[in-house]
Amino acid sequence: MKLGLHIPDFTWPGGAGRLGPDLADVVKSAEEAGFDRISVMDHVWQIGVVGPAEHEMLEAYTTLGFLAAHTTRVKLLTLVTGVVYRDPGLLAKMVTTLDVLSGGRAMLGIGAAWNEEEARGLGLFFPPLAERFERLEETLQICLQMWAETERPYDGEHYHLGRTLNSPQPISRPHPPILIGGSGEKKTLRLVAKYAQACNLFPGPELARKLEVLRAHCEREGTDYDAIEKTVLFNFDVGEKGENVPQIIDSLGSLAGQGFSVAHGRVAGVSGITPLEIIGSEVVPAIANL
């Protein structure tokens, strides 16, 4: 079992003036603790389950570039990019750039987008849900085409690219891994089976059934189900003195037993660093062989 540090909240005690150095300290500490990857949300306003819209939020890919400069090993991704926020040719170029400058550590985390309030607020493109899923599939096709070293045109229903030149190509081979976020059984998990190397699911009692649905889609698509990395959202709250560590280890063991190999999690009190140190000394060694 591997751990991913998810950073959805930038409202930290030091304020905006300290965000740069504080964030650098957090990601360096996470890497030292043994986290496998670090992710940020792709939002421009804070989301309701984390805090008020007015709370601090950083643009995702600028932030990932900053994280690349302050780490050496961890994989870097969004959980997850809202597909309609960037045209796919530009998105493929952004992920390529992150991969090249980080030494091959980028992943493309992507989904159909959901936050209409922030999109309308800042004038971002936000079509109806059915169209967003159509655009998601075309975006996946475009990214894969641009990462396949072909320059042929792409002519889809929504996107038309005259020349899919992408130089330099990513360092990751055959391309940066694609992770699709979401649990939708008819569309999202089908796209995982057809295009992705990883999925990210929400925790809950339906996890086992979601994996069976994914397995069925893989059978129809001719995809190796076992080759797809199963990841799940997980909140880490170790407690003030690490008193919650045994429960966290048990929960991670249960998830590993269901077939999950990565838990992406928000760490309570992360800006204080101590929770990361506790996870590194007590949780990471305990789950290494799950």
Rank of each mutant, 00 (worst) to 15 (best):
A60L: 00
P203M: 14
I7A: 03
G104D: 07
A69I: 03
E151V: 07
P88M: 11
I38L: 09
E116A: 09
I178K: 05
M107P: 00
G65N: 05
E117Y: 00
V238Q: 09
F202C: 04
L19D: 07
D36G: 01
L101F: 13
A216F: 04
I248Q: 14
R105C: 09
Q247W: 08
L129Q: 11
T97Q: 12
F35W: 09
C199K: 05
H158Y: 15
G111T: 02
I248Y: 07
N235K: 10
E151P: 00
A106C: 05
Q46W: 00
P176Y: 06
L5F: 04
M57W: 05
E56S: 12
I228T: 08
G204M: 08
Y225P: 14
I171F: 04
L290I: 04
K210E: 12
D99E: 08
V26Q: 09
K187F: 12
A68L: 11
G156C: 13
I142W: 08
I110L: 09
A92S: 15
A198R: 08
T164S: 15
A60T: 05
R120W: 00
F133I: 02
E219S: 12
E134A: 15
D36A: 14
A53K: 00
W114A: 02
G104A: 04
I180E: 03
A30W: 05
G181H: 02
G204P: 02
I142N: 04
S271F: 09
I249R: 11
E157Y: 06
A69T: 01
L76P: 10
N289P: 00
V80Y: 01
E137C: 13
L191D: 13
V267K: 07
E243Q: 11
L252Y: 05
M1D: 05
T81E: 04
Q46N: 12
S39V: 11
N115Q: 12
P285H: 11
C143E: 07
R18V: 07
G89C: 14
M94N: 07
P8E: 02
E54P: 01
V40P: 03
L101Y: 11
F260Q: 03
L136G: 06
Y159F: 15
G280F: 02
R209D: 14
V284L: 11
V80D: 00
F35Q: 14
S172W: 02
I38M: 03
L64C: 03
G51H: 01
A288C: 06
L179D: 03
R120S: 05
G280A: 05
R266A: 02
E134M: 12
N235W: 06
T97M: 12
T63Q: 06
A106S: 01
A69Y: 04
P275H: 06
E56W: 10
E32H: 07
R173N: 09
H217A: 11
L77A: 14
I47R: 00
I287W: 08
E134T: 13
A193C: 13
L144C: 06
R163K: 15
A60V: 07
L276E: 05
Y195V: 12
V40E: 06
C199L: 15
